[in-house]
Simulated scan of single mutants.
Amino acid sequence: MKANQIHTGTFVNQKEVIAVELTNTKGTFVKLFNYGTIINQFVVKNAQGEWQDIVLGFDDIEGYLSEEYLANYPYFGSVIGRYANRIKNGEFTVDGISYQLAQNAGSDCLHGGTEGLDKKVWDIIELHHGINPSVTFQYFSLDGEEGFPGDLAIQLKFTLTENDELILAYQADTDEATPVNLTHHSYFNLSKNGEGIQSHYHQMNASQWLAQDDNYVVTGELLPVAGSLHDFRTGKRIAEGWDSENGYDQSYLLDKNYNDLTLASRTHADDSGLVLAVYTTEPVAHFYTAKYLDVKNGKGGKSYGSFDAFCVETQHAPNSINIPSFPTTVLQPEELYQQTTIYKVEVKK
């Protein structure tokens, strides 16, 4: 029932980074930064009645700005855009005009380019106190930013409910046809002691997954999960039968009606009893078990490595701007982009 702003005294591109704290009547607590709309803390009560932070990150904003962190940058807890995941060769065509983006992941464009929405200081345009506290951030991405056409006005509202749901409600509009595919990139660990996520139990409502090339770019081919290590429909331990060297870094086509708000995944840890359920209006969830994670001096001085967290990134299919058979990600000037994702925390009975 609280929504507080805290000045950090840290400036990025002459704009101050502000922390926003949301607290419900149970004491569940979320801390966000207006830099990249980072989810810095998500503190919930586990089955033993202990308070537990379920997201990876740093103790303060300086950690997210350090050269060491940015050199092997995992996008801790940040918004991703204008376009989530990879675009093949950083190229696309809209209305007969070809555009070239930064090639910041080999020959491909990753997560919106060199300086995407994750590295911008957003404006705080509304704070709501009382039951279900919320904050709304806004950013104007100008025509040509990172190579994308059109001025894009984006709002992202975070609401913390009495049911321990963190609701992310996105909307955007443009003055020119442009591809838009937004997501959020929190790294979750539900274990009491922050141990690896191999023993977490994960269930994903997806009968198909999206084939990728050697650089993790979606090709357009849909593959059945049945009979493969990608079958999470009835749930299993993350490490059960997996490729122990690579883990998971794949996109899954959710079993749902387009645009309906439905359950994408449920993940729980035995030792804490915590369950994270992810609901979304988006058609795809990208499941990543953090193979490439290598961060020093995280929260409390802890280092984070491979398989210390998992991500469920709700979005449209990566590279779908180049795959005509997939639902369009082109936003037209007369349209309003909208999507909702919910992180709901429960205690397993």
Results as ranks from 00 to 15, higher is better:
8 T>S: 13
153 A>L: 13
159 T>P: 01
155 Q>V: 03
287 F>R: 04
69 Y>K: 01
201 Y>P: 03
178 T>I: 14
154 I>R: 00
287 F>I: 11
253 L>F: 03
344 K>C: 10
298 G>Q: 09
19 A>K: 11
334 E>F: 03
299 K>C: 06
122 W>C: 07
178 T>M: 12
133 P>A: 06
78 S>E: 06
175 D>K: 10
245 E>W: 02
299 K>F: 05
229 L>G: 01
270 D>F: 07
219 T>D: 04
243 D>Y: 07
176 E>Q: 15
255 D>H: 01
269 A>H: 08
41 Q>L: 02
268 H>F: 15
299 K>N: 06
67 E>V: 04
344 K>M: 08
87 I>A: 06
282 E>S: 09
90 G>L: 09
169 A>Q: 13
100 Q>R: 11
3 A>F: 05
267 T>W: 01
122 W>F: 05
341 T>W: 02
99 Y>D: 09
218 V>K: 00
208 Q>W: 04
240 E>S: 14
31 K>R: 15
150 G>S: 12
227 G>K: 07
166 L>D: 05
76 F>N: 02
248 Y>E: 06
141 S>T: 13
118 D>N: 13
45 K>H: 01
13 N>Y: 01
325 S>Q: 15
310 F>E: 05
278 V>N: 06
206 A>M: 09
3 A>G: 05
326 F>E: 13
309 A>W: 05
271 D>Y: 08
106 G>N: 06
183 T>K: 03
190 L>T: 12
129 H>F: 04
258 Y>L: 13
20 V>I: 15
